[in-house]
């Protein structure tokens, strides 16, 4: 069995449920093909280095799985059909995984860790967004002139950059 890694970028506006549905679709496809799903890494939203379909941001997800090579075609077909997917890339990670079970448990642990981190990050983002909204409301209440508003928007962008790093 070979190990593959498919990274795909989902439109940033898609809801969590929509993303979940897509991931489940992929999982189901993997199961049908008889390949082993290892882990799904939710990297989160990050700024794109260049615009894709007029989007400045994208939600990155990485799916690892073991397979003989047939499932790759199917996964890529599904991703191509999905309109919310901006871009995908499949990479072969390992040529020969002999101990499938060991890799499976290892991956499961990694997934757990990453999920934890993703949850923390999501919580942080939510908090920041709330703070931003509150600041916006205050600014509006104080009737700050337009240029000041622009400055705040810029600040927001910079915050996002820091998140990515």
């Amino acid at each position: 069995m070979r190990e593959y890694e498919t990274t795909f970028i989902v439109q940033p506006e898609i809801s969590d449920e929509g993303r979940e549905a897509l991931c489940q679709k992929l999982d189901a496809s993997l199961e049908k093909q008889g390949s082993v799903r290892l882990m799904l890494d939710d990297v989160g939203k990050r700024k794109l280095a260049y615009e894709i379909q007029k989007f400045q941001k994208g939600h990155y997800l990485t799916l690892n799985y073991l397979d003989d090579g047939r499932a790759v075609k199917e996964i890529e077909r599904l991703l191509r059909l999905e309109e919310s997917v901006l871009r995908f890339l499949t990479v072969q990670v390992a040529d020969e995984v002999l101990d499938v079970e060991a890799r499976k448990t290892e991956a499961a642990e990694q997934e757990k860790l990453r999920k934890q981190r993703a949850a923390e990050r999501a919580a942080r983002e939510l908090e920041e967004e709330r703070a931003r909204e509150a600041a916006d409301r205050e600014a509006r209440a104080a009737r700050v002139p337009v240029p000041a508003d622009d400055g705040e928007a810029d600040d927001d962008d910079e915050n996002d950059d820091e998140d990515e790093e």
């Binding site: 990274t7 970028i9 794109l48 280095a49 894709i52 994208g58 871009r87 890339l89």
Partner: peptide, 13 residues
């Protein structure tokens, strides 16, 4: 080259 495809680093800037 892979990172460029995934819009992680720019092709040109």
């Amino acid at each position: 080259k892979r990172a460029r495809q995934l819009a992680l680093i720019p092709f040109t800037s």
